[in-house]
Computed example of a mutant assay.
Amino acid sequence: MLKFKLEATCNKTKARAGVIETPHGKIETPVFMPVGTRATVKAMAPFELKAIGAQIILSNTYHLYLRPGADVVAEAGGLHNFMGWDRPILTDSGGFQVFSLSTLREITDDGVLFQSHLDGTRHFMTPEKATLVQEQLGSDIAMCFDECVPYPCSPENSYKAVERTIAWAERCKKAHKRSDQSLFGIVQGSVYPEQRIYCASELKKMDFPGYAIGGLSVGEPHEKMYQMLDVLSEELPHEKPRYLMGVGYPLNLLEGVARGVDMFDCVLPTRNGRNGTVFTYSGRINLKNKAYERDFSPIDPNCNCYACRNFSKAYIRHLYRSGEILASRLCTWHNLHFLVDLMSKARIAILEGSFEDFKRRFEDNFNDEGGRR
């Protein structure tokens, strides 16, 4: 069972440093979790993830349920054995994917009838089934099945999803039997503070070992996201970990940390890496741009990842233009290292009592070719 210990809090913000203990090891927070949707982090091998300091990765119930099937993973000895990763794993329940990827879906109070994006077959996912699948996968942290609404969303539709999310959370908790796996509740409520507070208060009554914040980073203005985090920073239990789902932009990460969030995940660093966009301490840049044709400096002189230690912007640009797979691998390696390292530095700053200054310096230096936020 999961244990969480707070080690330090910032006296000027809500930032916290802690340690989460799981059956597959400890996780120092705040932490960024690379996304391995289909039991692999795209372009990265497990030993490479360890090399960048990844403490925990995320996989997805929806995708693994459809292929290869939870029974196959269970027969392999669980997700850790199946993918060769012996550190902690968190599995998303698949709720977001059911609503975002399915070409056909019908939501009822019982569950969701959806059509597979792979072959068009129909499936019925219930809270009980989502819980069972995650137990078969054997992750350290599992998520309740929830209803995620898009942005914008009317108050009425959002409230219906909140009520359903609460009811489904209770069903997940009753169905969950695996003692070596911790089940987190998910707070929904779109951008409506009173709905977020209501959802969090109802989930707290169920006493989950951790709480996720879902339904953000779905197109709403960043200020709205921060407002919801401000609301929940006081509402969620201080003694339990908090997980902001689907957020991975560097400035958003630090704003989340400042509001008391402990865990983050996002496909952004791997997706951007495959497209030539990389994060640096000076900002975000696209290595495909001609400006880097004769730039023989590393991606970021302040970074000590494998890509920055060994290759130049010009070389990586050449790889992209030549269609070489190594380009995607190097940029993915760098981006993941960058976000993992950013959270490690934020943690050190919290422990040293200098987080507010650290955050301000980062924001002052981070300029974005594609727009600041």
Rank of each mutant, 00 (worst) to 15 (best):
25 G>N: 03
213 I>W: 04
198 Y>V: 04
345 K>Y: 11
159 Y>Q: 13
342 L>R: 10
37 T>H: 04
198 Y>M: 10
211 Y>P: 00
108 T>V: 03
233 S>H: 06
164 R>G: 05
358 F>K: 11
256 G>N: 06
195 Q>D: 10
111 G>C: 09
27 I>Y: 03
236 L>Q: 01
18 G>L: 04
352 E>I: 12
48 E>D: 14
36 G>H: 02
86 D>P: 00
246 G>W: 08
141 I>M: 09
17 A>Q: 01
201 S>H: 10
148 C>Y: 04
34 P>D: 05
202 E>S: 12
112 V>A: 09
111 G>W: 06
277 T>F: 03
371 G>Q: 10
270 T>C: 06
102 S>E: 00
338 F>H: 15
366 F>Y: 15
79 L>D: 04
370 G>E: 13
279 F>K: 05
167 A>P: 02
196 R>K: 10
359 K>H: 15
186 I>T: 00
49 L>R: 11
194 E>V: 01
40 T>I: 11
200 A>Q: 05
327 A>D: 08
81 N>S: 14
119 D>A: 09
108 T>G: 13
44 M>T: 03
300 D>Y: 06
113 L>A: 05
253 L>W: 12
63 H>K: 09
113 L>T: 14
239 E>H: 15
166 I>K: 07
341 D>W: 13
165 T>W: 07
234 E>C: 01
250 P>H: 12
161 A>E: 07
42 K>V: 07
127 P>F: 13
184 F>I: 08
2 L>H: 01
254 L>Y: 10
7 E>C: 03
145 F>N: 09
370 G>R: 09
171 R>P: 05
254 L>S: 14
28 E>L: 09
30 P>S: 11
88 P>E: 00
4 F>M: 06
213 I>A: 02
